[in-house]
Amino acid sequence: MSRTPASRRPGPAGGSGPAPYRKPVPTFWWLRRRAYLVFVLRELSGVFIAWFVVFLLLMAGAIAEGSGEYERFQDWSGQWWVVLLNVIALLFVLLHTLTWFGLAPRAMAVRLRGRRVRPGPIVATHYLLWALLTAAVAWLILKG
């Protein structure tokens, strides 16, 4: 190795010896590895979460306008392309939920009575909370 002070990014002019070779990053680097592809898909779930907000607000607006507008919303949301979009969105949201719960124990170092809680129980708590909230929301909407 050259004895010149190591620059942060050795370029063609840095150092005394010949230029080190820097491999360029391909534009679609995330297609080259399964883990990278899953990562990009996980990040793209954010787009579908934003779509859900739009869908929810359209529905809430329609309900506020009256029953006629609510029926028009129901007709619109029954079209094949809206349902298809929502099916894709749900798959992405589920990917988000599963990866989110899976990564949760990484960020939290929970201690109980001086002992570090293992990742398993932390993940299980998340799933339990998810089940409870899902049941509560479904009950609230379907009871009428």
Partner: peptide, 19 residues
């Protein structure tokens, strides 16, 4: 090793990491 400048063959530049 990927993501590091290659000095020669399989030898990469360590300076950035050391800094």
């Amino acid at each position: 090793l990927a993501n590091f400048p290659v000095v020669r063959d399989l030898v990469v530049e360590l300076g950035d990491f050391m800094n």
